[in-house]
Design a protein around this nucleic acid. Structure first.
Lengths: 399, 399
DNA sequence: TTGAAAGCGCTAACAT
DNA sequence: ATGTTAGCGCTTTCAA
């Protein structure tokens, strides 16, 4: 409508400058809130911005500021490590090769109508291709309420600061390289990584490349990298003390995977406290932090120690599975057997009966993790650090 | 170590060109796999890339290609709509103002040690500040297994294509504007939006801005935008037929929220099929697609119709809640009351008893949604379209 | 087939 | 306090 309707794409700084009768630099200053700008001119610029419908181009800005204003939120797993296939032995991976390496998928088979009228129908093909590769890993990740809490904490912290999280999954060697590559390209300013398994090579890969990152939980192998973590042993102590105070005397525990620090520490802390109270031997059954494994572990525990009157599960999911089995085996919770979980996840509250559990302030910890990363980005010279949170006991019905 | 250790940051095309003894243009061609490149020179360039450890700078590339190679994955909700506060009535929002609008948070209180030695301790402060604003929305989102499946489908499709998803939540007016702004800045090439509530203004906002997007599920109000969806009515029909075939004669249903198409359609489809089979009246209790609301609805249904022998819940979460209540009220599932859910989520399989349910191929649908968006990005002229998937019945123990 | 050169839109010295 | 100018690192005509 105005005289200014050239064919070009979205308006640029130049356009705004022209419209406001000032220079590009001035417009830039106004937009970035730099001081030393005449209020009158400021108003003029703002008007011009409004009139032209200007939006700064992020790529252009990033190119010069060397910041992407985004971070990678990566969920990392052990995963298979198939040896590199062939060619290109060099360290640098060209983006295009990674892109074209696509093995595609069932994209072609979809029936997509061109009209907007009635739309098309797509025969009920079952989830054939997609869950093959990484699907199972992601399914596991999302099955645990833990992940959602991390995202919540991170996003809530990042959002008011204008930083956006890019979601990445790194469960294979290839995927890990892509994460590193992504960071090296400057697509993200740093990484927040949640490792789901021990022996995860990603933290080392990232630090070796000199890239800024913060971990959720101490790495299984020592790596010079910042992290937030929970005082797992203290949490286990709280659980043991509660069980003992309640009068339980034949107490067993369902441990998490022992190759991950959280699993080790929770077991060690529990055993330690039990020992200090005169219980040198504690029946243990191992689980994998899943409901099913918790149920299975409970079965085993019960088979060997039918007279159990207290159980500490290393996380809520396993505690839920344990409760289910206990009920099926005719035990009342907590009257016959008291149960304590760990994490204070949604699962704990919605369990029947509601679970007494050790609270891990995941959202706060995730936010702190993000804060540490932003700190690091602001002052790259600062040394790595760690922040350890204290767990608390949440008393509900199960113990 | 080599002669080439200038102080500068990461190596650029220029550096590689120099090292390979060719021009920037040639290196660019090799890296992007453009034809017409002498094999010998290609090799030389690759070597130079390896030697220099070159990685293309994404911002620079984006600036000229006008593609970000990322998309916004946005979870959108109704949310409160506080009227705009003041000033700046214009349509264009400067990035800086949005950024500086940060009301900050409990960042300052964290105790962070500077040494990497022992790390510091953080007193067990409960999740105070973070869950206030958007926390509850995100908590809801993650509580539903649905979301994880969408992400799984999207990521699996996008990953081999070198596109990265940026996670965004748009449950307030401000958050919605930020999504639009983000897209307008070219930070993402398009949006994949999952609307959790009706009356969501985001789809319209996006299309009005001429930005490419695809929805999961038909919008409550008609908007000229592409989407994928499920034939919900057909799914409800499958459930009704199964219940009837099983011999159930006093059948009720737990409906989802009726302001969202999926809720409406599942109820309508169920009623319709029941009517066709001589059941003009079907007891209905409304739920909110959550386990708790499903339990509550079941209570109401049971109170009014104690002799019920079959229940169709509009999603698995509600079906799980219903099963729980049925068991508590002394009904055996499926012997006394048969129960059918909807979605075939994890919740269905892990329910006791395992839930017979209507399968919604969420992962496939999400992948298709991503495919539609990429299609659109490749050929912006193409008209909007829709792809409707057919549900299938998954028979387990509950019916 | 390769090189030279012109920008993409922005920020940040530097000059005024 | 504002304008001028020089790039940021890349792709892509256009010539050679």
């Amino acid at each position: 409508m105005t005289e200014d309707s050239r064919a070009a794409g979205s308006p640029t700084l130049e356009d705004v400058a022209k419209a406001a009768g000032v220079s590009r630099a001035t417009v830039s200053r106004v937009i970035n809130g730099v001081r030393n700008v005449d209020p009158v001119i400021q108003a003029a610029v703002r008007d011009a911005v409004a009139v032209t419908g200007y939006t700064p181009n992020r790529a252009a800005r990033s190119l010069v500021t060397r910041k992407a204003d985004s971070i990678a939120l990566v969920v990392s797993g052990a995963g298979d490590d198939p040896p590199p296939v062939a060619a290109t032995a060099g360290p640098a991976a060209s983006t295009s090769s990674a892109t074209s390496a696509a093995s595609a998928a069932s994209a072609a088979s979809a029936t997509s109508a061109a009209d907007s009228a009635g739309g098309s129908r797509n025969g009920g093909r079952q989830g054939a291709g997609f869950d093959g590769g990484v699907g199972s890993f992601m399914t596991e990740v999302f099955a645990d309420p833990f992940f959602g809490r991390v995202v919540t904490g991170v996003v809530n912290f990042l959002r008011p600061r204008g930083i956006h999280p890019v979601l990445m999954f790194a469960e294979t060697s290839l995927a890990r390289d892509e994460v590193v590559s992504y960071l090296r390209q400057g697509s993200a300013d740093g990484a927040l990584v949640v490792s789901t398994h021990a022996e995860d090579p990603l933290p080392a890969l990232i630090t070796d490349a000199g890239l800024p990152a913060v971990l959720y939980a101490r790495p299984a192998r020592p790596v010079r990298i910042s992290y937030v973590d929970l005082a797992h042993q203290d949490g286990a102590r709280l659980a043991a003390e509660r069980l003992l105070a309640r009068g339980c005397r034949r107490i067993g525990t369902i441990a998490g995977p022992l190759d991950v620090p959280a699993g080790q520490d929770r077991l060690a802390g529990f055993r330690d406290t039990m020992a200090r109270h005169g219980h040198p031997y504690v029946p243990v059954a191992g689980g994998e932090f899943t409901e099913e494994s918790g149920a299975a572990a409970m079965e085993r525990l019960l088979a060997e120690h039918p007279d159990l009157d207290g159980v500490f599960a290393a996380n809520d999911l396993m505690a839920v599975g344990a409760c289910q089995v206990l009920r099926e085996r005719g035990r009342r919770v907590p009257d016959d057997v008291a149960v304590i979980g760990f994490d204070d996840s949604r699962a704990a509250a919605s369990c029947r009966p509601p679970l007494t559990t050790v609270r891990q302030p995941v959202e706060d910890m995730a936010a702190e993790m993000a804060r540490l990363l932003l700190d690091r980005l602001a002052r790259p010279d600062r040394p790595v650090t760690s922040v350890i949170f204290e767990p608390t006991l949440v008393r509900r019905a199960s113990a």
